[in-house]
Design a protein around this nucleic acid. Structure first.
Lengths: 162, 162
DNA sequence: TAATAAATGTTATTTTATAACATAACATCG
DNA sequence: CGATGTTATGTTATAAAATAACATTTATTA
């Protein structure tokens, strides 16, 4: 079972690949990945940890760009709709999707201490959830599976630094 | 498979039972279920749908009680810590726990249209998630499994009324 | 009853998100 | 090209959710 993760997960992609892939996908769909939207996606991918909307806004302003909350939220809405990012409901933050294109739920391990996130995609979990919803005649619109805890790296430390 | 839900779920409890059970549990633990905390739990259980913190606050004020946001959030924190309620991260609302006592994650089906929530407790899902976290050496602190969609009742209607 | 701890009251503020309307950029058709 | 409609962004204001910080009250126990 030690390699279950690697078997289940497609290879991780980096920021550059993610941006290229986003452009391709949007072109195919006739969706407009404008400069603003592309920049927001880039900011998200360049971060080691998921970012909140206002952090992204600050970074846009650092670019010299003007903006207000709606600027960011509209770009985020677009990226969410295109399946290019995920929103982590537990922390109100946004992270790049490692499997762009397939609109999926995904499963997330969020480290409370370092803030880093692993995106799983265990098909068995998706199937069980689908079985439950199917059995109930419940139509799924969005799926949120998030585990908050402590990652192996942070567990090595004496306690959570603070 | 039509009865999977019933097999997995303990029998539903009503508001009266939930309050009685909460009192027993708190007494056993030496936790103080004060009048305020009890009333908040009651408000939550008397609602057909999960409630937001400010809605609960309004209801407390309807009681003639004084209060401000911290009044509610502190009571909610207590009830969460005792495993008597759940917080649904997708909607920022709170709902009574159908399995009080066992600190568990649970899985929730949330109807976008009527707001009603079903709490599942499928052990297989919990096991798969635990297998994933174990394989990664990830310590779990909290688990969130929420499905947003449309319940069978609302699916019968022509479309979502609006 | 005095001392301590726990719970609640109170004011202010922070953080997250959206409403509403104005302007600018882009497309496409004549 | 220039008019027209659509999409995207700018802008101001506000709503909604959550917490910080400190005062007061209530309960517990010494």
């Amino acid at each position: 079972m030690r390699q279950a993760a690697d078997l289940n997960c497609p290879p991780s992609i980096d920021a550059q690949q993610a941006l290229t892939r986003a452009e391709t996908l949007c072109q195919q769909r006739g969706a407009r990945l404008t400069e603003l939207r592309r920049r927001v996606l880039e900011i998200i991918w360049n971060s080691a940890t998921p970012l909140g909307a206002y952090t992204i806004l600050d970074m846009l302003r650092d670019d010299g760009r003007q903006g207000a909350p709606p600027t960011v939220y509209r770009a985020l809405d677009f990226l969410l709709a295109q399946g290019l990012i995920h929103r982590l409901a537990l922390l109100n933050v946004f992270t790049g999707c490692r499997r762009p294109g397939s609109h999926h739920g995904g499963q997330f391990l969020i480290c409370r201490d370092c803030g880093r996130v692993s995106e799983l995609s265990n098909p068995a979990i998706d199937e069980l959830l689908r079985a439950e919803t199917d059995a109930r005649g419940f139509e799924v619109l969005a799926q949120t599976v998030e585990i908050l805890g402590r990652c192996p790296d942070c567990l090595k430390e004496p306690a959570h630094h603070g």
